[in-house]
C-alpha cells in the first residue's frame, strides 16, 4: 500500500527523531532546531510530489539529509581550510617521509579495543566523541556520510565536490587522525 503524508501530525510524530538525527551529525543544538523547522517547511512545498514509495519519516529524513549536506558544504569552505592544514601537519608525525614507515613512537599499539567482544565504557565513548570533533569539518562530513549514512562514494564526491582520489585520501587521513587521537587519549 502507498504511504500517505499527514502534515498535521508531523511535529508530534517526527520532530524529535529528526532533531536527534541532525544533532548527532552537526553537534549544534540551535542549528539542529533550525534544520528541523526548515525540513518541515521545505517538505510542505514538496507534498504534491510525494509518490508514496517511502514512509513519511524516510521521506522527511531525506529532505533533512540534504539540508545537513548544505551545512557540511558551508562548514568545509573558508576558515576550515586552516583546520585541514593543521590536521594534515599532524600526519607528518605518523610516517617517515622517505619510505612511509611508521615513526616508532606513533605507530599503532594495542590499547584494549582490538577485541571484538570488548565492553565499551562510557569513558571511551566520550573520548571517541572528543576525537571525532577534532576532525576538520570536510573530513568529518565525508567520514559520516560514508560510515554512518552509507552513501555511495560517487554521491559523496558530487555533493561535497571532492574528486574520487581525494575522497580516498580523506577517508584514510580521517581514520589515521582518529585512531592516533584515541591511542593518545586512552593509553
Amino acid at each position: 500500500m502507498d504511504h500517505q503524508l499527514n502534515p498535521h501530525h508531523w511535529v508530534a510524530a517526527h520532530a524529535d527523531y529528526l532533531f536527534g538525527f541532525a544533532i548527532t551529525r552537526i553537534n549544534d543544538e540551535e542549528l539542529a532546531k533550525d534544520l528541523v523547522q526548515e525540513t518541515f517547511l521545505a517538505a510542505l512545498e514538496k507534498v504534491a510530489k510525494f509518490e508514496g514509495k517511502s514512509s513519511e519519516r524516510t521521506w522527511l529524513t531525506a529532505i533533512l539529509k540534504n539540508k545537513i549536506i548544505d551545512v557540511y558544504r558551508k562548514k568545509s569552505s573558508g576558515l576550515q581550510n586552516k583546520m585541514v592544514k593543521e590536521a594534515e601537519d599532524e600526519q607528518s608525525d605518523f610516517f617517515n617521509a622517505d619510505d612511509g614507515h611508521w615513526i616508532n613512537n606513533n605507530g599503532p599499539k594495542e590499547f584494549g579495543i582490538e577485541d571484538k567482544d570488548r565492553l565499551v565504557s562510557r569513558e571511551f565513548e566520550l573520548i571517541m566523541q572528543k576525537c571525532l570533533q577534532k576532525l576538520p569539518a570536510l573530513w568529518m562530513s565525508v567520514f559520516t556520510m560514508k560510515h554512518i549514512d552509507e552513501e555511495a562514494t560517487e554521491v559523496i564526491c558530487t555533493e561535497l565536490k571532492v574528486t574520487s582520489a581525494n575522497f580516498w585520501v580523506i577517508i584514510h587521513r580521517a581514520k589515521l587522525n582518529l585512531r592516533a587521537c584515541l591511542q593518545r587519549s586512552w593509553i
Partner: peptide, 20 residues
C-alpha cells in the same frame, strides 16, 4: 604495526556506528 592498525580500524568503524 599495520596488523594492529587493521584490527583497530575495523573496531573503530563499528564503535563509531554504535556511538551514532
Amino acid at each position: 604495526f599495520c596488523r594492529i592498525y587493521k584490527k583497530q580500524s575495523r573496531v573503530i568503524n563499528e564503535m563509531v556506528q554504535e556511538l551514532f
